[in-house]
Amino acid sequence: MRQRYSFHADQAGHSVTVNVRTGWITETELLVDGKECAFHRVHGHGVYPLTLSAQLAGEPPLPLSVRLDRTGVAEQPYSCVLTVAGSEHPMPERAAR
């Protein structure tokens, strides 16, 4: 059975979302302002931590990365951290749509 998890943060006027769909194939997507900027697909549960990179639009563009990790806790199996300009921001989990 597939499970879905979603993490979201607002950063510098931009929306950053990470969606995870687990199952026989695990898919992870990084959305910036609603547009897919990075995608990772692996059979099984994958290897963690997983880091995806993108950039925030602007002059100059601002690089960002998100690090997704397994927690080992059944109630919250993943944690997600957004890194922008060398500063880390935990991304709260939200109800997957």
Rank of each mutant, 00 (worst) to 15 (best):
Val32Gly: 06
Ala12Gly: 01
His45Asn: 11
Leu64Trp: 11
Arg41Lys: 14
Gly46Leu: 07
Ala96Thr: 04
Ala85Cys: 06
Tyr78Cys: 04
Thr51Arg: 11
Tyr48Ile: 08
Leu30Trp: 12
Thr17Cys: 00
Met1Phe: 13
Gly72Val: 13
Leu64Thr: 13
Cys37Leu: 10
Leu30Ser: 07
Leu31Met: 14
Val32His: 03
Glu88Lys: 10
Leu68Pro: 11
Val73Gly: 05
Arg67Tyr: 00
Val47Cys: 06
Thr51His: 03
Lys35Gln: 15
Val18His: 03
Asn19Val: 00
Ser15Leu: 02
Pro90Ala: 00
Arg97Asn: 12
Tyr48Ala: 07
Gly58Thr: 11
Ser65Ala: 12
Glu75Ala: 15
Pro60Leu: 07
Phe7Leu: 10
Val42Gly: 04
Asp69Glu: 15
Ala9Cys: 06
His40Met: 00
Val16Thr: 01
Ser65Glu: 13
Tyr78Asn: 02
Gly44Arg: 09
Cys80Met: 02
Val84Gln: 01
His45Tyr: 07
Ala9Ser: 14
Met91Ile: 10
Gln3His: 12
Pro77Asn: 06
Asn19Arg: 04
Leu50His: 05
Pro49Cys: 10
Val18Phe: 05
Ala38Val: 09
Pro61Asp: 03
Thr83Leu: 00
Leu31Val: 09
Leu82His: 00
Phe7Arg: 04
Pro77Val: 13
Asn19Trp: 00
Pro61Thr: 09
Ala38Arg: 05
Gly13Glu: 03
Val16Gln: 00
Leu68Ile: 15
Ala95Leu: 15
Ala9Leu: 11
Ser79Gln: 12
Gly46Cys: 06
Thr22Trp: 04
Gln55Asn: 11
Ala9Glu: 07
Glu75Tyr: 12
Thr26Gly: 01
Gln3Trp: 08
Leu68Met: 14
Pro49Trp: 11
Ala74Leu: 15
Arg67Trp: 00
Arg94Phe: 10
Tyr78Met: 02
Gly44Met: 07
Ala95Val: 15
Val20Trp: 01
Ser15Asp: 14
Glu75Asp: 15
Pro49Lys: 06
His14Tyr: 00
Arg21Asp: 01
Thr22Gly: 00
Glu36Thr: 12
His45Gln: 13
Gln3Thr: 13
Leu56Lys: 03
His45Met: 10
Tyr48Gly: 05
Pro90Val: 04
Gly44Pro: 10
Arg2Leu: 12
Leu64His: 08
Val42Pro: 05
Thr22Asp: 02
Leu68Ala: 11
Ala9Arg: 10
Glu88Ala: 15
Glu27Val: 14
Thr28His: 03
Gly46Ile: 11
Arg2Pro: 15
Leu62Ser: 12
Thr71Asp: 03
Arg4Ile: 09
Met91Lys: 07
Arg2Cys: 07
Thr71Trp: 06
Arg21Cys: 03
Ala54Lys: 03
Gly13Leu: 06
Ala96Phe: 04
Glu75Asn: 11
Arg70Ile: 14
Glu36Pro: 04
Gly13Trp: 10
Asp33Val: 10
Met1Asn: 09
Ala9Asp: 06
Asp33Met: 07
Tyr78Lys: 02
Gln55Val: 12
Tyr5Val: 10
